[in-house]
C-alpha cells in the first residue's frame, strides 16, 4: 500500500507568541518549531499500517521554508521511507486553499492508496487543508478519525470518529483521505538508530515551476482568504473568592454571574 502523510511544521505549543508590530503575522525570532502534534498521529498510523500489512511505502509531503526539513526528518527518523519538500519563495503566504492546490498538484503525479493528515495545524487551527485537498483530488475523505481499520483485501477502510454522545463509524473505498485526531494512537519517538538511517533517506525538493503553477495561482495572490488582523487573547484576570454564609454567598455568586460575567 502506498501511503502519503501530509505534515506541517508549526511553532511549539509551549512557545510564547508575540505579534509583529503593525502586522498580521507573528514574531518568528526565538520561536521553536516542531512537527504539528496532530500530524504525529498521522505518521504513526501510516507506520502501523505498513508494519501490519507489509509491502507498503510511507511518503511524507510537506510545504515550507528550509527549516521545515527538521520536521520532515523527524518523520523519516520515526520510520517514514521518503519525503517531498515543497519549497519555493512563491509558496509563502499561501492560505488553506492555495496550500491545498499546491499539494493536489503534487499528488496528481504520485501513486497513492491512502492520504493521512493531522486534523488541523496547531498554528492557525483552520482544519481546511485535509478536506480541501480531498475535494481537489476528487477522493472521499473522513475527518477527525480516532480509529482506522482496513478490510481484509485492503480495498476499504472503516473509520471511527467521535461525535456528540457517540461514535460514528464510516466505511469508505480507497483511495481516500483521513484527518487524524488525538486518541488514534500513541506516536513513537525517533530512536538514535532511526535518526542515523533518516540521513540516507531521500528528500526530494519540488518548486512551483516543476508543478506548473503560476505566480497568480499560489502564495497570497492565489489565496481566497486574507488575515485582516491578529491579536492575543485578553490577559486572564485574577479569580474572585466570595466569602460568607452559603446562602448569602450563593446569592452573591448568582448576582455576579448574571450582572458581571453575564453568563446566566
Amino acid at each position: 500500500m502506498k501511503i502519503v502523510v501530509c505534515i506541517k511544521q508549526v511553532p511549539d505549543t509551549a512557545a510564547i507568541i508575540k505579534i509583529k508590530q503593525g502586522s498580521s503575522s507573528i514574531e518568528t525570532e526565538g520561536v521553536q518549531y516542531v512537527l504539528n502534534p496532530y500530524d504525529e498521529y498521522a505518521v504513526e498510523e501510516a507506520l502501523r499500517i505498513k508494519e501490519k500489512i507489509g509491502d507498503s511505502e510511507v511518503a511524507v509531503l510537506s510545504m515550507g521554508q528550509n527549516r521545515t526539513k527538521d520536521a520532515i526528518k523527524t518523520c523519516l527518523a520515526m520510520g517514514a521511507d521518503k519525503a517531498i519538500h515543497l519549497i519555493d519563495d512563491l509558496f509563502e503566504g499561501s492560505d488553506s486553499y492555495a496550500t491545498s492546490l499546491i499539494l493536489a498538484k503534487t499528488l496528481r503525479d504520485i501513486e497513492y492508496d491512502l492520504i493521512l493528515c493531522g486534523k488541523q495545524g496547531v498554528d492557525d487551527d483552520a482544519a481546511q487543508v485535509g478536506p480541501s485537498l480531498a475535494e481537489m483530488l476528487n477522493i472521499p475523505h473522513v475527518s477527525v478519525i480516532t480509529r482506522l481499520d482496513l478490510s481484509d483485501d485492503n480495498k476499504k477502510a472503516i473509520l471511527h470518529r467521535e461525535v456528540e454522545d457517540g461514535t460514528e463509524i464510516i466505511e469508505t473505498s480507497l483511495p481516500a483521505l483521513f484527518t487524524c485526531q488525538k486518541g488514534l494512537n500513541e506516536p513513537r519517538l525517533p530512536s538514535l538508530k532511526g535518526i542515523m538511517s533518516a540521513k540516507k533517506k531521500e528528500i526530494r525538493e519540488v518548486n512551483s515551476e516543476a508543478l506548473g503553477l503560476s505566480r497568480e495561482e499560489i502564495g497570497s495572490a492565489g489565496s481566497k482568504t486574507e488575515v485582516a488582523a491578529l491579536s492575543l487573547p485578553p490577559q486572564r484576570k485574577g479569580g474572585k473568592i466570595i466569602k460568607g454564609e452559603p446562602q448569602e454567598s450563593i446569592r452573591e455568586l448568582v448576582r455576579l454571574l448574571r450582572e458581571e460575567a453575564k453568563i446566566i
Binding site: 513513537r188 519517538l189 525517533p190 530512536s191 538514535l192 538508530k193 535518526i195 542515523m196
Partner: peptide, 8 residues
Amino acid sequence: AIKDAKIK
C-alpha cells in the same frame, strides 16, 4: 547499546 534509545 544506545542505538535503540528513543529521544524523548
